[in-house]
Design a protein around this nucleic acid. Sequence first.
DNA 1: CGCGATTTGTGCACGCCTTCACAAGCGCCT
DNA 2: AGGCGCTTGTGAAGGCGTGCACAAATCGCG
Lengths: 250, 250
Amino acid sequence: MSQQRHGSTSGGSDRANAVPAFPDLPEATIARLPEYLRALHNLGEGGADTISSEGLAAAAGVNSAKLRKDLSHLGSYGTRGVGYDVALLIEQIEYVLGLDQRRAVCLVGVGNLGHALAGYDGFASRGFKIVALFDADPTKVGERIHGLIVHHIDELPQVATEETIAIGVIATPAGAAQAVADELVGAGVTSILNFAPCVLSVPANVDVRKVDLAIELQILSFHEHRKASLTALPGGRSATGAGNQEAVGS
Amino acid sequence: MSQQRHGSTSGGSDRANAVPAFPDLPEATIARLPEYLRALHNLGEGGADTISSEGLAAAAGVNSAKLRKDLSHLGSYGTRGVGYDVALLIEQIEYVLGLDQRRAVCLVGVGNLGHALAGYDGFASRGFKIVALFDADPTKVGERIHGLIVHHIDELPQVATEETIAIGVIATPAGAAQAVADELVGAGVTSILNFAPCVLSVPANVDVRKVDLAIELQILSFHEHRKASLTALPGGRSATGAGNQEAVGS
DNA sequence: CGCGATTTGTGCACGCCTTCACAAGCGCCT
DNA sequence: AGGCGCTTGTGAAGGCGTGCACAAATCGCG
C-alpha cells in the first residue's frame, strides 16, 4: 500500500457505540469494494439479476472466498442457494463507500497529467465532480479545460467557501506539492489524492493516498529483472513453462 | 494491492539454487524500494553523504524499523554507528530493481490519459524510455506526440521485432484492454501496467499491475463517509481533535 | 411435504508483514 | 588503547489477511 497512515492509533469510539456507521471494515476490503462495484455494474448492464460469489469473484479478479468474506463484513445481503441481488448489492456498496452523495473534487496542477485528469471520464461516472481547477502558473490561469476555468492557487480559499470541497487532487511537481497540500488542508479539504512523487505531511485527520506512476513501472522492472535472471540460470526451467490462462472474465 | 497474481504457486527453483539472483524479497518490500530510491536521490542532491535509517525513513514516510528490515533483505550495506552510504545504497537498489539497464516501454492508447503518460517526466528520469505509441483510432495514427509518432495497433508485432519491448502500458478504454493485452503478450511483452478499469487475463508468466484512478477516489470517499458519520455522532469527539502533524519530510 | 442441489456465511489455521526491543558492531574522543 | 555513544541488523511477538473446508440456509422438484 502506498498511502501513509489512516488513523490507526486513535480508535476513537471504543466499542458498542450507538451507530458506528460501519463496523470498521478491514482496509484491504475497502480497497476491493470499488472493484466489486465496477464488476456489478458491468453484470447489471449485461442483464444479470443475481450473481453468485463465484461469478462475481471471477469478474472482479479475486478469490470467491475472499469476496464472500469481504461482503459478509457489510452484512448479509446474499441469499443462500441463489447468490447476491445485483441491484441491492450495488446500492449497499455505494452506500458504504459514500457514493450516494456527490462529492466535490478540486484539482491542483493542470500540467501534463492534471490536464488529463480534468477530462478523465472515470471520475464523473462514479459520482465525483471536479468543481475547480487551480494552478500556480499565471499563464495557465484563465485557460478553459474541459469546461472548467483554471483559477490561481491563491483563490483556493475563496472558492472553497462557495462550495464545500472534501477531496483535493494534487498533480503538481514534487517541489510544490507540500505547499499545495497545506493550502488544501487550510481550505478544509480532508482527503488528498497525491500524484506528486513526494511524501506529504498532513494533520492526522486528513487522509492521503499516493499514486506514483513511476513506482509502478519500477516494480514491474524488478519482476522483469527477476524473470530475466531466472531464465539465465544454468539449470533453471524457462519462465514460460506454466503458460496457463487465468479463468477470469466472461 | 490492486494487481492480480505474481506467480505465487509456481515456486520454480525450489531452494538452495546456485545464484537465485535475489533471495526472494517480500512483495511489500519491493513496493517500497522505489520510494527509498527517490528519497535517496533527494538526499544525495542535497549533499548528504551518509544517512541514518531514521532520516531515510522520515524522508520516505515509513517506520525506521521497517526500513532497516527492508534494506537488510538485500544485504548489509550500512555501517553501524554511522548509517548508510547514500551513493552505495542508490546503486544497490537500482541494481535490485533492474534500473541499471534501460527498459523499453510501449504505450497503447493515446487518449486523454495516454497523451499525458507519453509526456510524463517521471518515466524517463527513472530509466524508462517510451519507444512506441499505438492506438486503434485511424485518425490518431500518424500524429506526433511528444516526439513520437502514433502507430496503428496492428503494427505492434512489427515494431516489437525491431526492438525488444518488455513493458507495455495500456491506457485504452476498458472494452479494448483485453484485446490489447493479448496483442502485447503475443508480441513478447511480459509486464503490463494497466490503466483501464477492468480485469485482464494473461498467462502466468506475465505480470500485471493495475492503476485505477477512480478506485483511489472511491477509497477516499469511504474515509470521508466514515469521518462524516463519526462527527455526526451524538457523543462522538470531533474528528479534528488530534491535530498533530506528522514528523516526516525535511 | 420432504429431499437434494446449490450457495452463502464463517470458524480455523497458516503465512506474511509489522513492530518492538536489544545485542552486535563501528567510530570517535580522551 | 580503552571506553562510550550511536546505529545497524535481527530474533521474537503480535496483528492482519488469506484460503480452506464445512455447517447453515434457501430454492426447486418430485
